[in-house]
């Protein structure tokens, strides 16, 4: 905790996050943050419907850091996913620490 739910969009595999009104968003900043187990459970229920509705696959919760006022991923793996970046030609555009 705090957590955000992430998944891949079924039709194209793009990384998405569960947003405020049950929609899946591309930008982690627009994701809904669950600060406790109860709100995470609510998000998981919404996500379950999206899986059944074939919008996304592979839902899981990630740990985020809120210290600069917006969610940012804690693990390198999730930083890379959130950046939606390709490695070829534009690698230097983005430093991931």
């Amino acid at each position: 905790m705090p957590n955000v739910l992430t998944a891949n969009r079924l039709e194209d595999g793009v990384v998405v996050y569960l947003g405020n009104s049950g929609e899946w968003v591309h930008d982690l900043i627009a994701a809904t943050v669950a600060e406790n187990e109860a709100s995470l459970a609510i998000l998981e229920k919404i996500a379950g419907k999206s899986v059944a509705g074939r919008h996304v696959v592979g839902v899981y919760a990630i740990d985020v850091d809120l210290s600069n006022g917006k969610p940012s991923p804690k693990s390198v793996r999730e930083k890379i996913r959130a950046a939606h970046r390709q490695t070829f030609k534009d690698l230097t555009e983005l430093e991931i620490s």
């Binding site: 891949n8 079924l10 039709e11 899986v51 592979g58 793996r77 890379i80 996913r81 939606h84």
Partner: peptide, 25 residues
């Protein structure tokens, strides 16, 4: 895509055709 197959059912079929789901796509 029409929901007749779940991901669990579909995954072995897509893998037999070289299709993996990775981090971004």
């Amino acid at each position: 895509l029409a929901g007749e197959l779940t991901e669990d059912e579909f995954k072995p079929l897509r893998l037999m055709n070289g299709l993996y789901l990775q981090l971004h796509a």
